[in-house]
Design a protein around this nucleic acid. Structure first.
Lengths: 221, 221
DNA sequence: GTCTATAAAAGGATAGAC
DNA sequence: GTCTATCCTTTTATAGAC
């Protein structure tokens, strides 16, 4: 089974495939599905265009492979969280911080998700791998809410998916809308000072929301 | 100066231009800048491809015209807000509700903004019209915060742009990430029941944030 | 498995008449 | 101002040798 040194050097399918995916991730996240150019991807790989079609069949096939790998990374990240030992408030702080940092540090992923939304999540829907994504983060949040209610730290019986959305929306938007927001408000969202302030803000807002009860009954509008 | 009935029927430049923009808005927001097809736009107008180039010069020129018109609509919407008479909390509720409803009712706009972010807001930056957008909403929020602090309804000396971002992020994300979020969490974000719940949630979260003081000192991470 | 060359098609842009 | 027909570049995809 072991490959000879010669084989390793000449033919390394796994490395070739990964190399292509690395380059393609950059290209798709930079230009979108339609804007990306297969020629341009091929040039930046250590191999040729022929191999892209050999391994991934089509431009869309390559895009899907990129998307699947990006989500696979998330899955492994989420499953690493060990928050059951912490007090509910601290656990939530950690969870929010992790989401915040993840989006901040993975603009490529954020852009791919934006792009996939432009395409109505069509590719994601077709991918059994992504569709079956075990979203452990929801279970984690539900657990934190339950423990918080029991301990009296929280008062609101919030829906875990809603809370996840409140957190995600802010963390995601900061990265996804960095350019238009920065242009309109003359504010560079990548500045370190804002990093700290925004992280505190979303943490305070979510914790405050869970601590209080239904203070904001809807006005009639 | 008055046109004859014959002229009006045969040549109506204004109507032609608007017609093209209507169709182009749909096409660009549906497929993105690179994904949109000029041929496809032309087919759906009551005129021809030649006129698109006649009026807008290029595909990018047309895209920019679409973007500018979309932002012009926002500007007029924001300047219509009359909240100075209301109590700070109620004023904020109204403002959040308006933002929420706007994004909900204008998915085309939300998608165009997402698309423009994929392009690093490059076209927006080049447009003097959009760059000079008078973001009156920030002044409005600052006023609400100031009045709330004075009246004792709020405790936090928050930054108006940050608060706008907290509100926008949630309202925008609900629409922009509808497809991926819906697919992963098996939840249709356009459901009426969620509309009410999510509106309450973001309102409560923002009000709670402003009412309280810096409860969430950062952990050391 | 990998490369070079090329086919096949799509799509942006324009010519020229009316 | 408007239409039809067409140019020509770009881009996806494949053939065929090694």
């Amino acid at each position: 089974m072991a490959k000879t040194a010669k084989d390793m050097r000449r033919n390394d399918p796994e490395r070739t495939r990964e190399d292509i995916l690395d380059v393609a991730t950059e290209e798709f996240s930079e230009f979108g599905l339609s804007g990306a150019r297969v020629d341009s991807i091929a040039e930046k790989t250590r191999t040729s265009k022929r191999m892209i079609y050999y391994y991934y069949g089509s431009k869309e096939g390559l895009y899907l492979a990129v998307l699947e790998r990006a989500y696979r990374k998330i899955r492994s990240l989420e499953s690493d969280l060990q928050l059951a030992e912490l007090a509910p408030e601290e656990a939530l702080r950690q969870l929010i911080g992790t989401t915040f940092d993840h989006d901040e540090q993975n603009p490529d992923f954020v852009r791919l998700v934006s792009i996939e939304n432009i395409h109505h999540a069509m590719h994601m829907k077709r991918s059994s791998e992504i569709a079956d994504l075990n979203i452990s983060v929801i279970r984690t949040i539900q657990d934190i809410i339950d423990r918080g209610l029991k301990a009296g730290a929280f008062k609101r019986r919030a829906d875990a998916i809603d809370v996840h959305m409140l957190i995600s929306a802010f963390c995601f938007f900061r990265v996804s809308n960095r350019y238009t927001f920065g242009t309109i408000f003359k504010r560079e969202l990548s500045e370190p000072a804002l990093y700290v302030r925004h992280k505190s803000m979303i943490t305070d807002a979510v914790l405050g929301y869970l601590r209080s009860d239904d203070v904001g009954a809807q006005s009639g509008r």
